[in-house]
Computed example of a mutant assay.
Amino acid sequence: MPLENVFAEACLLEAAPARVSEAQVHEALRQHYAISGKLERLGGERDLNFRVILADGSSRLFKLSHPLENPDVVDFHNQAMRQIERHDPALPVQRVYPSLSGGFVESVEIEGQRMLVRLLSFVDGLPLHRVACTCEAFRQNLGQALARFDLALSGFSHPAAGHVLLWDMQHAQRLRPLLDYIEPGLRRDRVEHSLDRFEEQVLASAPTLRQQVIHNDMNPHNIIVDPEHPDVLRNILDFGDMVRAPLVNEVAVAASYQLGVSGDVLAPALDMIRAYHRVNPLLGEELELLPVLISTRLALSLCINFWRADLHPDNRAYILRNAHRAQESLAGLSLVSPAHIHDRILAACTQEVGA
């Protein structure tokens, strides 16, 4: 079912990825950044991404935005990265580099496709999704880093910060047409129930919540850890889903990816939530809504990813990379009442340090 009437951004997600050759990428790098190196194609939802391995062994990320991407949104991402670099330079976050002209984005035309290109930092390490099981120390480190991330962006504004984004939970209720892409049965019922609870318990409160620019996509593919010491966070990537939204949504998104898939699914996420709260305390109303928001994020992910996998079967494996985990986590949460989840989150956030 087309979604043009739901979000303009749906057109971008529905469109096939742009196509460029390695020779064309090399030419853009030479022309705008005066660098060359071995190229390694990386995955991406909307953009084309290439790791550039330089002669000295270091690497950069070369990103070509989709031809339909809004230039103001690209500038929003760049300015957010620069804001964090100024306000918390020690935070391990992706950086954007200037081109030969001194700008942080350049426009290129390849076979009639007008695209924006950027050169970003690339930190070697292990993507978190390749770590079989995270430890408590890592989850605490992640919570602290995410809290610092949000504190660095506190007060940051940009004309494109309020752009309408499909991955923004503020609009979750408008994703109901995508339920048709999830096979009928218990799994779809859980997703639909999560959307029901969002409408009933969150929608009316959302305008009164604290809002700011947030990362909005702290999933395991956007987190790099030390291969020898996977409790050490080395880098936070991908600002592509940034948006101005309720601050608590940031924690809900991150927590949804730290849930377990069996047994006590909530326990791992509590480590991250507790660590975030100690650095950037959440308010009572935010803590109260967190259980529903975590379920909402899982529901949103499943709706969007099954829809996009149907649209782009050649990219199905990448699109559905987190779907199984989301389904199992949502199933585990459905066995526990939101009130009990809230009680456990509150207990974790009021726990004494070292207890």
Rank of each mutant, 00 (worst) to 15 (best):
V265S: 03
V225L: 10
R321Q: 13
A204V: 12
D226G: 08
H215T: 08
A252H: 05
G102W: 02
N219K: 13
D310Q: 15
V232F: 11
G260L: 02
V243Q: 06
S337I: 04
I236L: 14
R316V: 02
A18H: 03
M242Q: 08
G44M: 02
L282H: 06
V243M: 05
R51H: 00
H77N: 12
E328D: 13
N219E: 11
E285Y: 02
N315L: 15
N280I: 00
S99H: 14
L270K: 01
G155T: 05
E200T: 15
P127Q: 00
E286D: 02
L175R: 04
S21L: 06
D241C: 09
A326E: 02
R187F: 09
G284H: 11
D88N: 14
N305Q: 13
D264N: 14
R297L: 01
S157I: 09
V251Q: 02
P220N: 10
P184C: 02
L259F: 05
Y97S: 01
S256W: 01
E27V: 09
L13F: 13
Q327E: 15
S121P: 06
S295K: 12
G162K: 07
R308Q: 00
N280Q: 09
H324M: 13
M218S: 12
C303G: 08
F104E: 01
G240P: 06
L283K: 14
G103Q: 15
Q258T: 05
A331C: 12
P127G: 02
